[in-house]
Design a protein around this nucleic acid. Structure first.
Ligand SMILES: [Mn+2]
Ligand SMILES: [Mn+2]
Ligand SMILES: [Zn+2]
Ligand SMILES: [Zn+2]
Lengths: 140, 140
DNA sequence: AATAATTTAGTAATTATTACAAATGTGGTT
DNA sequence: AACCACATTTGTAATAATTACTAAATTATT
């Protein structure tokens, strides 16, 4: 059940705790870019003793070891994402959903030419998602 | 002195107030992507009666009318930017500076192909800026 | 100048996040 | 398996960014 996450934590030399395993698993299985609040309220159902501080601490350490990434697209709160291959994000201003976008920007390399050392790249797109566009069309 | 900003506000049908003019001018003349706190404390020097709420209200209305844009790269607070041509941003994790980046992504058009209606595009890069790299080199 | 509608200033409330300290759990050692 | 040094979890308190609210002041118009 948790072998994958035990392995990931071990590889990163992070101490293994049930809370960290649950949080990492949750993020791996829910690619919805949840907030701390969302992770907390979902996991609290099976573990009523869970503390929100633990969720903050855990995402911090997972983040620092590169197992997850944080997303600032919404501007009001951080969101978290299990780390897979590089991808970008679309925020729907109507329904608030954050959707993965798979567009590779070939200009990425040219970033190095400007002299800064680039460690992270985030492509954020905002607008109205496919689903919301279709809902609007149905009304008319 | 303020003709340019009076014109911009009039064109957008926003009521002209000294506070809005000052804020818009400040953002036009300081391309540092300041926070509300920064704008507030800077403008307060010449107008001690200025309220922080007014800065929040003003950037909101300027934002809604497209005269400025907001930047979520830092994740902890919003930053504001006078709207010129499209450009992207680099955040230095060392010194915290947010620097303009002029790279056009030719893949932008392909966004529409995924079915979402794209209104905004933000390219955020994070790492160590040129200046901080050189500082480190000097030490060695 | 009078008026109606909007904006400002100041304060209170809310929300996301961080700080802290006592209780508990982890990984390694005997 | 019991022991131990150290790290983590909880629960609460503190901070920081933003929003809500209202009386007073200002704007654009007549
Ligand atoms: Mn994602
Ligand atoms: Mn900029
Ligand atoms: Zn939507
Ligand atoms: Zn720097």
């Amino acid at each position: 059940m948790f072998e994958k996450y035990v392995r990931l934590l071990k590889e990163s030399q992070i101490k293994i705790t049930p809370q960290r395993l649950e949080i990492l698993k949750y993020l791996d299985e829910h690619r919805t870019h949840p907030t701390v609040e969302k992770i907390y309220s979902e996991l609290k159902e099976n573990n009523p003793a869970l503390s929100k501080t633990t969720v903050y601490n855990s995402v911090d350490i997972l983040l620092n070891h590169g197992l997850i990434q944080s997303i600032t697209i919404s501007g009001s709160e951080l969101r978290y994402d299990f780390k897979r291959g590089m991808h970008h994000h679309f925020l729907c201003k109507k329904c608030g959903e954050i959707i993965d976008i798979n567009v590779e920007c070939p200009k990425l390399g040219s970033m190095l030419e400007c002299g800064h050392e680039v460690v992270e790249v985030h492509g954020y797109f905002k607008g109205i998602c496919k689903k919301c566009i279709n809902k609007k069309k149905e009304k008319n």
